[in-house]
Simulated assay, not measured.
Amino acid sequence: MDDLQFGTRNKRGDWAPKEPLQIASSWAVPFRLGQFLKFIPGYLFPWNAFHIATALLYWFYVVPPVETLQTLSWGWALWLYAVNAAAIFALYGSVEFFWYVKRKQGTRFKYNGKFPADQPSDVFWFKSQNIDNFLRSFFISIPLWTLVEVIFLYAFAKGYVPWLTWSANPVYLAALVLLCPVIHEVHFFCIHRLIHTDFLYKHVHSVHHNSVNPSPWSSLSMHPVEGFLYHAVALWHLVIPSNPIVAMFQLHVAGFGAVNGHIGFDKLEITEDTPLESHAYAHYLHHKYFEVNYGGDGLIPLDKWFGYWHDGTKEAEARMEARFEAKKARANAKR
């Protein structure tokens, strides 16, 4: 595909889409039913449908029987960790292998024209972003993902929280499934903005931001505090009446869905004429500028409401720079 039909490339080789980012059309004012109906398929497919499918596969083929879950055991906890690690290795690893190792589409649609493997740095373990990100994912974040999984499965199995059944609550649970991406977006915005405060950024979140040019392995490369807070979104289903399958879907939106913002390409060319939209641009801009787009890609426009939204345009750049200057002036005034 010719990526210059869809965007522009600067002298450094960085690509950017021509069209500015838009918040979800469901927020259009005035409300337009036609736009909302067009929004629904993109909301469900392919990513949320994929996460629903993986949640069902886990529940029927991976999660042990309820009787087993009622007793905390290293056996079933390690089994869940092994499956989580294998699944992430397969999903993230396939993108990493084809688009970053084999470089099957070169830098077409790639936001940053360089590849992390070509940029060794002392900020990473072994001076390698890929090795550093891989090790942090598999030995920090995925164990914490599994810890959250163990907590909610055990709580449901022991009856510590209500376990709503699908037969008795089909409409409510279906609606809750549809709201899971919304819950994720609000939770992510809140914890993400929190760990961008000065102390927590320096001691926690800076680990993730070392990857200015993110790749799939960067997705779960986090400090332990961030890794737990990020996956703890599934624990909301111990607070609101829910079902363990819905909680599993919520966890997969976070765990498997983290790759979306870190793919580094706007489109993945599955075949010559079949692109897969990554929805990565909003979060790429966050990695590039640090203090914009704390949430997702505008499903719930919290960034726009709070003044952090960057849609990739020069106007957004000017607003960001003005905000940075005002912040610098406030800091200087306190000295």
Rank of each mutant, 00 (worst) to 15 (best):
V29Q: 15
W47A: 14
L220R: 10
D297H: 13
R319C: 06
P244I: 09
F265N: 08
K158L: 13
A55M: 00
K267E: 12
Y230S: 13
R12P: 00
T107D: 11
S137T: 15
E272A: 15
K38C: 03
L80M: 14
H184R: 12
D311K: 06
Q5R: 14
H192R: 10
A87Q: 14
A168T: 15
R9I: 08
R335V: 02
F89S: 14
K202E: 09
N112K: 10
W305K: 10
K110L: 07
H187Q: 02
F89C: 15
S167Y: 05
I300R: 05
R108E: 14
L37V: 07
Y230H: 09
A174F: 10
W145V: 13
K11T: 15
N169K: 10
G159T: 10
N213Q: 13
P20D: 07
N112G: 10
E226R: 07
V233H: 04
V246P: 02
G106R: 11
E67V: 08
T165E: 11
K127E: 11
A82T: 05
I195E: 12
L200P: 03
H237V: 04
T274G: 02
V63I: 12
N10A: 06
D132V: 03
S26K: 11
D303E: 04
S221V: 01
P41N: 03
Q105M: 09
L56H: 02
E325N: 09
Y111T: 10
E321Q: 11
G93K: 08
G307Q: 06
E185Y: 00
F98G: 12
H279Q: 14
L33T: 14
L173F: 05
L80V: 04
F45D: 03
A254M: 04
A49Q: 06
G257T: 09
W47D: 13
I240P: 01
D198E: 12
I245F: 04
K158E: 14
P162N: 08
A282N: 11
Y201M: 04
K11M: 06
E272H: 12
A254T: 13
A258F: 01
